[in-house]
Amino acid sequence: MIKKEKENPTQKETGAVRVYGVLRDEILTMKLAPGSAIDEVSLAERFTLSRSPIREALVRLSADGLVTMLPNRSTVVSPMNFSQIPEFLDALDLVQRVITRLAAMHRTEAQLIAIRKAEVAYEKALKICVKNGNSQGMIEKNYDYHMAIAEAAHNSYFTDVYRRLLEEGRRMLHLHFQFQTLDEHKTADQIGSDHSLITNAIEARDVELAEKYAHQHAAQFRGRFMQFLNRNLTSDVQINYP
């Protein structure tokens, strides 16, 4: 048994933050599969911590919707309900269109600068992602970009709904990106071109064009994700039947 030193509040907080960050990355990149059990004792040994900061980290992950704490005190990685994906994609499309339209209508100059900065950060993360295959940085910067647009929409109710949809869609985005990178001809500029169109429309205060590009962005994500679900990895396998 590993002996752990008594933790002061600062160490406890730092430990919980560290565990939260590591587990969050592993869940979002599917290293921890949906539905898999999470054992507090094993995590305490892995991070050389008591179970208290482990529980704190799991509570935060539960608030993010990434883990589910069951009545019997066990915890699992939140399952992905594929039967609800069409509903999710419909909601994402509608809310994204509304958010982007409102941003084009109400954005300030400071908010436009923030959107541009978030777009540049996303493009940098995307290039790194295409190069090394690790999608985590790209997923985070994609979230930041869309939330910068949401802030410019000036409607806290729509922003809260959009935030929830983007949070729930992170693992889908990882799967979607992994599928896109199977196409060796896809470049980072091609993958990220949608954002530039959206930002330009917001800058021009063209509400109709902003909504159009937001819809196209959601529709392309829908199409590519459904391609991922329908992919046939064995189509070229030849089997000789007797």
Rank of each mutant, 00 (worst) to 15 (best):
V67Y: 00
L94N: 15
V76F: 00
A103M: 05
T75M: 02
T75D: 01
K117W: 07
I85K: 02
L70S: 04
K131Q: 15
A110G: 14
T68L: 08
Q111E: 14
S83N: 08
Q96H: 06
Q111N: 10
V77I: 02
T68C: 08
R101W: 09
S52G: 04
R60L: 03
Q111R: 07
G65P: 00
A57I: 01
Q111H: 06
S83Y: 03
T100K: 05
V95A: 02
A114Q: 05
E109K: 11
S78A: 08
L70F: 01
L94E: 14
K127C: 15
E56D: 08
L102S: 09
A121C: 07
L66V: 03
G137N: 15
P86E: 06
P53L: 03
P86K: 04
K131R: 15
Q84N: 10
I115Q: 04
R97C: 12
K124N: 07
A110M: 10
E56K: 04
T75V: 05
I115H: 02
S78I: 03
M69C: 12
I115Y: 01
N134E: 15
R101L: 10
P71M: 06
Q136W: 14
G133P: 06
M80N: 05
E109N: 05
A104K: 00
L61M: 01
F82K: 08
Y122A: 08
D93T: 14
K127D: 15
A110Q: 13
M138V: 12
Q136Y: 14
E56G: 06
G133T: 13
P71V: 11
M105C: 09
I128R: 10
V120D: 09
D90N: 13
M138K: 13
V130T: 13
V76P: 03
T108P: 04
L89E: 15
P86F: 01
R116D: 13
P86V: 04
L112N: 07
K131H: 14
R101A: 12
R97Q: 12
I85D: 05
D90I: 12
A91D: 11
R60Q: 04
S83R: 08
G137C: 13
